[in-house]
């Protein structure tokens, strides 16, 4: 059995309230991401999917307080790293694609400039060279006229185009070993959603990426993912291979989730 690339081990925590107490939201969350696999994290809104993912990168909201657990990556506990060590992980080893790509990019810099800045941060080289790599990356995520697009600002991009650029940034510019995608297609047109998912799967396979896909779309999960983590109310309800989860779900909550999406075996 191969070792997990990332292992979340009984992560617990909550939000600091005005009264000084902690309202628990994550309750011993544990799941593994196996190298080269595309793992889906599913569960209703508010179940703690994003919070867990953000904690991996140390970019959780400031009011979040961890009360226990570890996040092991390459044998090291990410939660014990200092700020400088964490920066060598962010982007370079673990990267992330957010839901609303247009808001996730800085409005005052061109898309090309933002990508080039990150390229130079991780790979060095001249500004010219970095911009060429940015344009190349935009081309690879099938953005037409990448040279012109690189000179545009995020607000000049459609939601779908912005998400392509965000994926180019996170996957191709950063070249991480782990890519987290937090609801990358939510809010986009249905036709565009399918294109983006195709692109994500293709890039992950080409780059040999390990990926964690947070999504609501069980249809996409059934088609594309290798493993599934089901979360509910701050806990992991069930984990397993996609086939296991869809054909033989062990937990009633998983069955309800599948029934609601009209996928999987009827209950």
């Amino acid at each position: 059995m191969t070792a997990a690339l990332l292992s979340i081990d009984r992560l617990s925590g909550g939000f600091l309230g005005a009264d000084g107490g902690i309202a628990p939201v994550l309750d011993a969350v544990s799941y593994d991401l196996m190298p080269g696999q595309l793992t889906a994290v599913v569960g209703e809104t508010g179940s703690g999917k994003s919070l867990t993912a953000l904690s991996v990168l140390g970019i959780q909201p400031p009011a979040f307080r961890r009360t226990g657990g570890r996040i092991l990556f390459g044998g090291r506990d990410l939660l014990s790293l200092d700020a400088a060590a964490m920066r060598t992980i962010r982007g370079a080893r673990i990267s992330i694609v957010f839901q609303d790509a247009r808001a996730a990019m800085n409005p005052v810099f061109t898309v090309g400039r933002q990508m080039a800045d990150v390229f130079r941060l991780h790979h060095g080289g001249s500004a010219r060279h970095a911009m060429d790599r940015a344009i190349e990356a935009l081309g690879r995520v099938r953005i037409p006229e990448p040279e012109r697009r690189a000179r545009q600002y995020p607000h000049e991009f459609s939601g779908g185009m912005a998400q392509r650029a965000m994926i180019a940034l996170a996957a191709l510019i950063c070249q991480p070993s782990l890519l987290i995608l937090d609801e990358p297609t939510t809010g986009l047109d249905v036709t565009i959603q399918a294109d983006i998912m195709t692109l994500i799967v293709e890039l992950c396979r080409d780059q040999g990426l390990t990926a964690c896909l947070i999504t609501h779309d069980l249809g996409v999960v059934a088609e594309t993912c290798d493993a599934v983590v089901v979360m509910h109310a701050g806990r992991v309800v069930e984990t397993g291979s996609t086939e296991q989860i869809f054909t033989a779900p062990a937990e009633p909550y998983t069955r309800r989730l599948l029934a609601a999406s009209q996928l999987g075996e009827p209950v």
Partner: peptide, 22 residues
């Protein structure tokens, strides 16, 4: 508190770059 600040941090930029440039 904006999303793009979170992105800049997630991409590995230093605090100085995140605060002043972004």
């Amino acid at each position: 508190q904006s999303d793009y600040i979170r992105t800049a941090t997630a991409m590995g930029h230093t605090n100085r770059t995140v605060w002043f440039r972004h």
